[in-house]
Design a binder for these strands. Structure first.
Lengths: 375, 375
DNA sequence: TCATCAACTGTGTTCGTACACATTTTTTCA
DNA sequence: TGAAAAAATGTGTACGAACACAGTTGATGA
């Protein structure tokens, strides 16, 4: 843009240009300019048919010239339809990852409280495919205007999406997206990049010669956790592509039965005494951190994911050194916002896949990540 | 909150509760409930006087019970007043720090384009107090409804604020705040904490035994750059309070005459060959990074502030290892948003001083910090 | 007792858009 | 050609809040 040059000049000479108050053009203005009535313009704007080719041409000519943006507020009070949104996500408990996403939903619903939205939440256990199927099947009867999905299981979600597409119901993904579907938009994180960053962090935080380990959660059944796999790939690729050649060991631990971990983890650490850093590839880093604390081990650096209540505590007391976060509130907020933009204002995001910033949290900048919604 | 327990129970048993669609209460409803007319309720809500004690009591009783939130959209279209906002900040060039703040302003003005806002920008040279005085004096004639200030010089700003207070014009600070004033709200960063985090980062990124240096910009005249001082304090305190005892040397460089730096910086580095890390306390880290690159020095880690165009380039090519960022766009956006909330909706932030999150940017998470306004 | 004035209260119009409905124009076909 | 159907178009009202203005009440003093 050579606008930049002009701006520099203006700034240099202290010439101030106030924002162009290009007096909002109204539907009536367009109607007058095109020589038709406001009703006809409205029909064209909303694709409601019953418009002659000549009228359409006249109005579209004017529209092309004047950059009409209709008044969101007037629109909102006129549209008194109640919209129905179904939301299906893993159980959202306060202080955990999905609780933060839920906060984002609720924040958005509050921000847009002047729009009638009937929002139904459906929760499932992300470790239990049957629970997910049951939640998905609840959607069958309801005829929502849009659906927001936090998917975990690939096949089930694809089936759900096919059904929605048949009924022409738009859907949006949060947290992760499923290939082979056509969502309106998605708010996710590049998990591979997360893995790389995690590698970079752990590499920086531990001495060059030390060994490191990655810990994954044990899962019941043979369902794969896509996010963890991507993260692991990024993590390993970081070390193989950077000059930093380390010995990277793998281990696992149990989220559901934390008592089992003590022996197993301690044995693992005794067998690998060079390990000075552990990357926990899901949001349960606190389990490992707490275990190390209980055993009096203080010289092993732990890094993990997501600002959950427990992880926050461990970051504060220093037993976790860094966390990667992916703005769960913002994902929830934006999902609702996009839905409203689509349903009410017929405006879709130019970009379908939105990747969230990956925040690096350490003890020192942690306090400033409290008020995530001051926007 | 023991609500949490109930929620857990509900989730466990898959009981879904849709958001309480507590059917928005309207002014007419309140009027009916209180046995008065809508006009009277309106007078009370806007403190417009001419209300009898009995009416006031009746309405306030109803208001206390029903949690009335007036419809933002209806309010916006009814209020067709044009608001005038003056903004005084350092010259905002694209790709630099204040350019990002300016983007935030413009984004907000677009988001709220259905509200008539006449926004006048006044820029000054942050290295020149006379330029600042001249910009401030421009405000004298204008009678804005609110003023947004990006302050640099303490005394001048205090005088300006006194004048605004006399005229009952609210003002908001972005970037930093001035003690002894009464702004409506402020959007700033804890610069001391920034210093601590910078210390932590540089400490992690360099070998334990190496020396490190902090670089400040040379400034014309004796005006102090408050931000840099705070950052330096935090940086030094981090090293003296953590176990990490290092030799920290201080040096300075010139922003205005970069050619002078070559000899000076190289001499400094030759005299202190143990230095393996440099913290640049302002947003010009790229100057040092580029110099080191030109000299073929690759084993010195550079950390600095703010995602400017030049710093982005250096972060990408690895010559800067980490940047601390303070969400300048968000500051600008929120300043406008708060102003509108205050003027139109008579709603003030419960909290006056807002501290921005401090983002840690490295090469790997840099790509995801592009679309900062997808909210 | 009534005129006067202030204090108070209710009504009606406005904002810009959406949409139902009434009206006009055009097309279709016996 | 004319009646009926279909298509196109204009009009009017609603949304909820803000506010001007007209109307009502009640107190005061002559």
């Amino acid at each position: 843009m050579n606008c930049q040059y002009i701006l520099q000049y203006l700034h240099k000479h202290r010439i101030h240009i106030s924002t162009p108050m290009a007096k909002q053009i109204k539907i009536k203005d367009i109607a007058r300019m095109a020589g038709v009535s406001a009703g006809t313009v409205d029909r064209i704007l909303h694709n409601r048919g019953n418009v002659s080719a000549s009228s359409r041409a006249a109005v579209e000519k004017v529209l092309a010239e004047v950059d009409y943006k209709y008044n969101i507020h007037a629109s909102a009070i006129s549209l008194r339809k109640e919209y129905k949104i179904d939301i299906v996500i893993p159980t959202a408990l306060g202080g955990e990852y999905w609780g933060a996403v839920q906060n984002g939903f609720e924040h958005a619903l509050h921000e847009y409280r002047d729009i009638s939205i009937d929002c139904r939440f459906h929760y499932y256990n992300q470790f239990d495919v049957y629970s997910c199927r049951s939640a998905y099947s609840e959607l069958k009867g309801s005829e929502p205007d849009a659906v927001i999905i936090g998917p975990t299981f690939v096949e089930e979600t694809i089936v759900l999406c096919r059904g929605l597409e048949e009924k022409n119901i738009p859907y949006i993904f949060v947290d992760s997206r499923i290939e082979g579907t056509s969502p309106l938009t998605t708010y996710t994180t590049d998990q591979y990049a997360c893995g790389c960053i995690l590698g970079r962090l752990l590499g920086s935080l531990t001495p060059k010669e030390s060994g490191i380990a990655i810990f994954g959660a044990k899962r019941i059944g043979n369902r794969k956790a896509n996010n963890s796999l991507e993260r692991k790939k990024g993590f390993l690729d970081y070390f193989s592509s950077s000059g930093d050649k380390r010995s990277v060991k793998e281990a696992s631990y149990s989220v559901l039965n934390p008592d089992d971990n003590e022996e197993e983890v301690m044995t693992f650490l005794k067998e690998n005494p060079d390990i000075k850093g552990i990357a926990v590839l899901n949001s349960r880093g606190y389990i490992i951190a707490d275990l190390l604390k209980a055993k009096g081990i203080r010289n092993i650096i732990v890094v993990s994911f997501d600002l959950t209540g427990n992880n926050r505590r461990c970051l504060e007391d220093g037993s976790i050194s860094a966390l990667l976060c992916q703005r769960p509130e913002l994902q929830g907020f934006n999902a609702i916002k996009s839905t409203i933009n689509h349903l009410l204002y017929k405006q879709d995001e130019p970009q379908v896949n939105h990747l969230m910033p990956i925040d690096i949290l350490m003890k020192e900048n942690l306090p400033f990540y409290r008020e995530l919604f001051e926007i």
